[in-house]
Amino acid sequence: MASLGDMLFLLVAFAVLMVLVGKFAWGPVTKMMGERSDKINNDLDYAENARTEAQALAEKRQAELKNSQADAVKIVSTAKQNGEKQRQEIVDAAHAEVATLKSNAQQDIAQQKADALNSAKDDVAELSLAIATKIIGKELNADDQQALIDGYIKGLGDVNGTH
């Protein structure tokens, strides 16, 4: 009754079925399922990386923005300082020039005054000599006269309290 043939038949049929299902259905579909889970894993990793990268970039940008603000402040203040310095220099130079000009002018004036005084002295001496010659009709030695006149004029100046 109990049929050994049926057992063998079932075992063979089951083995063949398992091989065929494994080859034609289980294999391709589980492979595809594995690929899918791999892809999902990769995508998640990729998204995580992209997020981290974006965050790093944002932080970097923020830091650079801060840096550039500080730079701008520094540049402006440097420019201000430079301008101030330059202005000071220009003003100082102008002051110096004015002072130089003024002193030059004073020197010129003093020189001219001295020159004029000297030439006036000479003129007065010659005039006095000419007058004296004419008056006393006697030609005096010019150099002796010069010394005499200088002494006289000096005396005049002392009386006047100037010179």
Binding site: L20, A25, R36, K39
Partner: peptide
């Protein structure tokens, strides 16, 4: 069984 599974597993896609 085989035909059912074979039919279900044609052109597996991601």
């Amino acid at each position: 069984t085989f035909l059912l599974v074979f039919w279900l597993s044609r052109k597996p896609q991601l």
